[in-house]
Design a protein around this nucleic acid. Structure first.
Length: 575
RNA sequence: GCGGUUGUAGCUCAGUCCGGAUAGAGCGUCUGCCUCCGGAGCAGAAGGUCGCAGGUUCGAAUCCUGCCAGCCGCACCA
């Protein structure tokens, strides 16, 4: 809503000076200090443009603005025009809007009719689900929810790494060493042990690698027995992944692996890739490289190294599959955008593949984006020092349980503390992941992970429970009318300003594919919130004041809950 | 070597896209605050050559150039 006001003001400036409103709009900013006002317009550039003295210019605008609605005062400081919003009327209008729109406040229709595919999480079947996989999962899921909130039709695809040499290796290990007798027990850990064991023994025993090669070959030749084993192995791994997704609250519309299985579970990747190679050859995009490998060469000016599509031994690669899969997705969905939520090390790979899409003249070229993110540092799958996600989760849940017991022993009378502990733990984990810019590497630091103080998920959830607590105590439906004039304190005004910034924040997060913007926004809200009820009572003797404040509280709860949901964090009633 | 990316307080990071006022949080340290809607909270203190050097500008953490450091990538892995 603040943006709408700014737009109106920009038009006022346009009328006065002739400078396009759009340009003026972009100059508006938040003053450094609260005392300066609510919105500032630096006049330096504007004045220069029409060759007027900055001070005259600002003064002239100041006079104009003194009669504009929703503005209570205008002031010139230095080269700035500082505007103060008429608090009561703005607050009245905003709160009414939030309460009326409820769940939908901040949503939009900008994405109506548009389909976005999000390829995320995409674990390799042959590797255990570590903390590192968390990033793609959490980031992709959050982006999906954010885009959906803005009206896009979102299709989440889990592109499983269910084919290739890695999988074959694990199949060998599985066949040799997996103990099927106690199926229920710690499957994920056992699979992880297989993984570590295989890579260790492989070094001393080259036999194993050969065996794996054989398995892969038999798979690619669709040998029945191998395929059966393959399916069994996939099923076992998938069951583990599903459990983790369940805990994290993540859903996919499609589990589609590299194998490109059909409904009956028969892999079609081989034929698909053959046709890709044929098609690219017809388009004269392939050249022969060393040893007869087929490669795609790019324009020298672009400085992109060549991309291999077929090895000299005739087998295909990751990139080949990428093309085949993209074509398949296009046939199926005719998407407007496709987001690949994959780590930053694959940047070049996507640069090459996307460029190839263009060269091949595919209709979806230019609609694809690599949503890169930094990695967790200090972990390696091969050496076995990897931190298993489930272990971290269990530790977090245990910690949450303890904190609950200590701080809110009454909880078990009304809720299941185990469930709450889980939601708190997941909230902590997700927030810790999403609060930073996605490109940044994350150092795995157990202590930080386990902290519930300060800028953390539980801090936000806590702020939400306090709002719920007040609303619970109030116990009635919201007052139909309230007098926003009574919300006169700076603390309340700050909150109103926060509320007004929600839709812009969501939009911004979506545009930049950066959920961290929402995370930071929520921290600001929660911190202002805590300050507010440190200093003011909501439920007090004066009925009118109570009515006004409870309306503010209700509006804040809506926004906080929605923001948390968008990130994938449960807004709790109690904790 | 080439390409990319990051560098802001002891630590973890906002702010950089789109240049504006005295550079902001959290953690940790120190000091206060529960007769009161939940203290997982709040207030205050201490802590900064915004990697370095130039340039553009009325104005640079932000834009440009160069350099330094870390990380990532650069044909038969995915």
């Amino acid at each position: 809503m603040l943006d709408e006001l700014k737009k109106e003001w920009a038009e006022v400036v346009e009328k006065e000076t002739g400078i396009p409103a759009e340009e003026v709009f972009s100059y508006f900013e938040k003053p450094k200090k609260e005392e300066m006002g609510d919105v500032a317009l630096p006049c330096f550039k504007l004045a220069k443009q029409i060759k007027e003295d900055v001070k005259n210019f600002a003064e002239r605008l100041k006079n104009t603005f003194s009669t504009v609605p929703f503005i209570s005062s205008a002031e010139v400081v230095g080269g700035y025009l500082n505007l103060r919003i008429e608090r009561a009327s703005f607050t009245q209008k905003l709160l009414k809007k939030v309460l009326e729109e409820g769940e939908n406040y901040g949503s939009s229709k900008e994405g109506d009719g548009k389909t976005v595919l999000i390829d995320f999480s995409s674990p390799n079947i042959a590797k255990p689900f570590g903390v590192g996989h968390l990033r793609s999962t959490v980031l992709g899921a959050a982006l999906g929810r954010i885009l959906q909130f803005l009206g896009y039709k979102v299709i989440g695809i889990n592109y499983l790494g269910d084919w290739g040499a890695q999988v074959a290796k694990m199949m060998v290990a599985y066949q040799k060493w997996f103990d099927k007798s106690d199926k229920e027990k710690d499957t994920i850990k056992k699979l992880y042990e297989l993984y570590v064991r295989f890579h260790k023994e492989e070094e001393e025993n080259p036999h194993l690698a050969q065996e794996a090669d054989k398995v892969l070959k038999s798979l690619e030749e669709c040998e029945k027995k191998s395929l059966e084993l393959w399916r069994e192995f996939i099923e076992i791994s998938m069951a583990e992944f599903r459990r983790i997704y369940e805990i994290l609250g993540v859903d996919f519309d499609e589990f589609a692996g590299e194998s490109m299985c059909d409904e009956k579970g028969a892999p079609r990747c081989i034929e698909r890739m053959d046709s890709v190679i044929k098609e690219l050859a017809e388009k004269r995009l392939l050249t022969e490289g060393e040893g007869g490998a087929l490669i795609v060469e790019f324009d020298q000016k672009e400085k992109i190294p060549p991309l291999m599509m077929r090895k000299s031994d005739g087998t295909t690669l990751y990139a080949t599959r990428e093309v085949a899969v993209a074509l398949e997705r296009w046939r199926k969905y005719k998407f407007d955008r496709m987001l690949y939520v994959v780590g930053v090390p694959q940047k070049l790979h996507f640069q090459q593949v996307f460029r190839l899409f263009e060269m091949a003249g595919y209709p979806f070229a230019g609609r694809c984006e690599h949503i890169a993110f930094g990695h967790y540092l200090g972990m390696s799958t091969r050496r076995g020092t990897m931190v298993l996600l489930e272990e971290v989760l269990n530790e977090l849940i245990e910690k949450a349980r303890k904190v609950i017991e200590e701080k809110n022993p009454e909880l078990l009378k009304v809720e299941d503390p185990n469930k709450v502990a889980k939601d708190v733990a997941v909230g902590a984990l997700i927030f810790n992941d999403l609060k930073n810019e996605r490109i940044k590497d994350v150092v795995y630091d157990e202590e930080r992970f386990l902290s519930f103080d300060g800028e953390t998920g539980p801090y936000l959830q806590y702020a939400h429970t306090r709002l719920c607590g007040i609303l619970r105590k109030w116990g009635k439906s919201l007052p139909r009318e309230f007098d926003a004039k009574l919300l006169s304190s700076d603390e309340e005004w700050r909150l109103v300003m926060n509320l007004s910034e929600f839709s812009r924040t969501v939009k911004n997060a979506a545009e930049h594919r950066e959920p961290s913007r929402i995370a930071n926004y929520l921290i600001e809200c929660a911190s202002n919130l805590n300050l507010f009820y440190q200093r003011h009572r909501v439920l007090c003797e004066e009925n009118n004041l109570t009515n006004a404040r409870i309306s503010l509280v209700a509006a804040l709860r809506i926004v906080l809950a929605k923001g948390l949901e968008l990130l994938g964090i449960k807004p709790l009633e109690r904790m």
